[in-house]
């Protein structure tokens, strides 16, 4: 019996250590982003730009497909139910609100966690395994400043942009179903889309995506920097990184939704 408590205690200590290191990585990254320019060591512009293209521009197509078809499915699922009440026209507002508040930011973040979070971990992890991280440290170059900070900033800039694209393509997906198979007038469809969509729906969704971006970049970097044990280690770290990002994104989404839509009821 005591053995189980002991194990539980060990696990708990391990988790607390991980949480502490993770929070420390966050503060170190933010420190370099804010203080770096004053210390004459701003984020490398070339690498920031490269990351923004890699993370943002190259992800547009996959984000479009995922959210577009989600919009299509949402409209198709909702239409028969609303039809029973004679309210087919409200398909448009149902799609736009659920996409902007919830599905756009979350689905985009999950796609990017799979695509970019994994890439961050694999890149930093194999650098760690090949002594490159140690080489940077030996040259007195902080790996957090040189490698993590540009990725973090690039993702925090690009994920909200991708989310806007995701929102738009989700609404477009609903629009395609609404105007073709549901035969709703195109102008009317768009009108009801805007009618019930408040500004708050959009900016809460975007602020969520900023938090998701931080989670993806930091989990990816943290797992990368912790990698050990050759190619197997890199593989393991990448898996853990993606899984952890997914879980943390959903938890953060739950908490933020609670704050935005539940607290002021």
């Amino acid at each position: 019996m005591l053995k189980y408590f002991e194990q539980l205690g060990h696990k708990l200590i391990e988790w607390i250590t991980i949480a502490r290191e993770f929070i420390r990585l966050f503060f170190e990254t933010v420190f370099w982003l804010i203080v770096g320019p004053f210390k004459d060591k701003p984020v490398n512009f070339k690498s920031l730009f490269f990351q923004m293209v890699f993370m943002g521009v190259n992800s547009i197509i996959i984000v479009f497909f995922v959210t577009f078809f989600t919009g299509v499915v949402l409209a198709m699922q909702a239409a028969p139910q609303l039809d029973k009440m004679g309210a087919v026209i409200y398909v448009s507002s149902l799609v736009s609100i659920s996409i902007c508040r919830e599905l756009g930011p979350v689905l985009t973040a999950l796609v990017i966690a799979g695509r970019i979070g994994a890439a961050i971990t694999a890149e930093i992890g194999s650098m760690k395994v090949n002594e490159q991280i140690e080489a940077l440290e030996t040259m007195a170059i902080s790996p957090v400043r040189y490698l993590v900070a540009p990725k973090f900033l690039a993702l925090v800039i690009m994920l909200p942009c991708l989310t806007i694209i995701g929102d738009a393509s989700g609404i477009f997906g609903g629009y395609v179903v609404g105007t073709t198979s549901l035969k709703i007038n195109a102008g009317l469809y768009l009108q009801t889309t805007w009618k019930f969509l408040s500004r708050k729906d959009i900016y809460t969704g975007l602020s969520k995506s900023v938090v998701f971006a931080m989670i993806i970049a930091l989990v990816g970097a943290y797992q990368g920097l912790k990698t050990k044990g050759g190619a197997v280690g890199v593989g393991r770290a990448t898996t853990i990184s993606v899984v952890t990002s997914f879980i943390l994104i959903i938890i953060a989404d739950c908490i933020l939704t609670g704050i935005y839509f539940f607290s002021d009821m």
Binding site: M127, N130, E131, Q132, A135, T138, M139, A140
Partner: peptide, 19 residues
């Protein structure tokens, strides 16, 4: 310590060039 470290050079087993 960082200032002292700059007077050190290190050549790594796997050469550790940034790829």
């Amino acid at each position: 310590r960082e200032r002292v470290q700059r007077r050190f050079g290190m050549s790594f087993q796997s050469s550790a060039l940034l790829d």
